[in-house]
Amino acid sequence: MPIDTVTIREPDYGPRERLYLRELVRGLLITSRHFFRNLFGERDLNSEVGERQGANLIATVSYPEERRAYPPGYRGMHRLVPREDGKPRCVACYMCATVCPAQCIYIEAGEYDQEGIEKYPTRFEIDELRCIVCGFCVEACPKDAIRMDTGTHSPAVLSRPLATFDKEALLKGPAVSHPTDAITYGKSRRGEPLKH
């Protein structure tokens, strides 16, 4: 198949360009246009940099006073999703730990005595330093029990052990329930309501 190609045409390079001055002035005009617009123009603080209006061309988002909201779907810091009763939705199925390419999730399972759901994690730790933020754990969870929707990234820590977040630290954010959950959550194994 013949390929649709074209040889790049070079910009004119005549004696005018050769004598430096003309292109230098042209370049200077471009940069001084930026200079004066940025010096005198009023800065639009829209965090969506591409949509800023006005003469000012400054593209800086001056963190931390100005912040860009992470877009929906941003893979941020993990959280363990709580149930309505505050316990983790996690059933310690180890899927997230299995799929994790960085092997940074550590889970130890325990058993509830009374509930319809038997397993729960007694330990659930994520080493955020090892994590490569791929989001596979979120995808792998069959109970929607782990999410990366906190809208923050994992915080800076002063020593490495502090970057390992345990179950208590991870269990946060709004509770989630699904229609399929109602059968089991908050019921005993025989389907009777639990007394708390």
Binding site: Y70, P71, P72, G73, Y74, V133, G135, E139
Partner: peptide
Amino acid sequence: ELLYDRITELCGARVTTAYTRIGGVA
């Protein structure tokens, strides 16, 4: 960076995109 912003919205990360899947995209 403007393009990376769009990529962030699409994939959830600027550079560590991990966007495609075997048989499609995420």
